[in-house]
Amino acid sequence: MSEDKHRVSRRKFLEIAAGSALLGGLYGLTFVSSVTYGKPKARRSSKPAGLDMVIAEGSGPSDYEKITERAIEVFGGIEHFVHKGDHVVLSPNIGWMRTPDQAATTHPAVIRAVVKLCQRAGAGKITCIDYGLDDWRLAFNICGAEQAVHGTIATLLSPTDPSLYKDINIPSFVPKMTITNQPYDSRHKYDHIMQKIPFELMNADSFICMPVVKDHEAAVITISMKKLMGNIWNRKDYHRYGLQQCIAELNCAVKPTLIVADATRVLQTRGPKGPGVVTVPNKVVVGVDPVAVDSYCCQFLTVKGITPDMVPHLVLGNDLGVGQIDYTGLKIKELAGAMAT
């Protein structure tokens, strides 16, 4: 009798085996899910009206909302980029504790215009993401982003925790340009830079990049290509391994659906945070090619006289096939005066 008590029946054995297999499988699944890389699901960019770039010029802050709407409308309309029920991620510069007239952040009117357009096109969810260096609770308020999205379905998000991110696979290339002229025998450093982008951006249907045009003391300029640095977690590695190469490689992996570059006010010196010299071109640039938009916007940086050749990540982006640096052959439409508003 006592022997029977300790005996495991076949049924019991099978139950235990099945249970442990299930648990082990679940554990294995978590392991598998943790090592797989995702890829951003954002819609591919297109040129619905056949235009490569549209530039609208206004006359003052009261026009900014109108010229933004007008430029997108001429470019082909928001409905080509945002479909009904889409989850739209906007990526404006809102991470600095600077007021709109200091030109370190995207103007609230431009953000509001794009948010309203997306809402009108039937977006299901709109998230404005910027992972800035300043305290986001203060920065979002001071730069006017909170007021810009007030009353709309858009929400602001600053992903300050690594768990809000997902791993992505970024192609790495042999650096074409050396800085210290060291032989690149340490190329392994450039392989496998683990990079993460926010959960929300990974699952977004449409990704609209909304940079402000400004000077940058390290990367020369910061427009749409450099703007992606506001959406990644591991920025420290990028500075160590060479900023320009890493920006170009990041742009190979993450591509915006639409770019709305805000050149209404341009910070000319002491970027990216300022305060510095500010000029007011009153322009908004809409395009889909990050390199072309950036090289076009270089003409607004008049104080330092920056040309596209002086910006290494534009040259590298051209070489890596992100876009084309020479915008002379492109179809560009410039709207001004009554046409723009």
């Binding site: 504790m97 002229n181 003391e217 390290a218 920025r235 945070k273």
Partner: peptide, 29 residues
């Protein structure tokens, strides 16, 4: 290398950048 993170994050604008000449760096990389 181009790195201005400390100046970017300083809330008191206490980190300033200046250009200095370095003989050990190549002009054309």
């Amino acid at each position: 290398r181009e790195c201005i993170v400390c100046a970017e994050v300083c809330p008191y604008s206490a980190v300033l950048f200046r250009d200095v000449w370095d003989d050990s760096l190549p002009k054309d990389p």
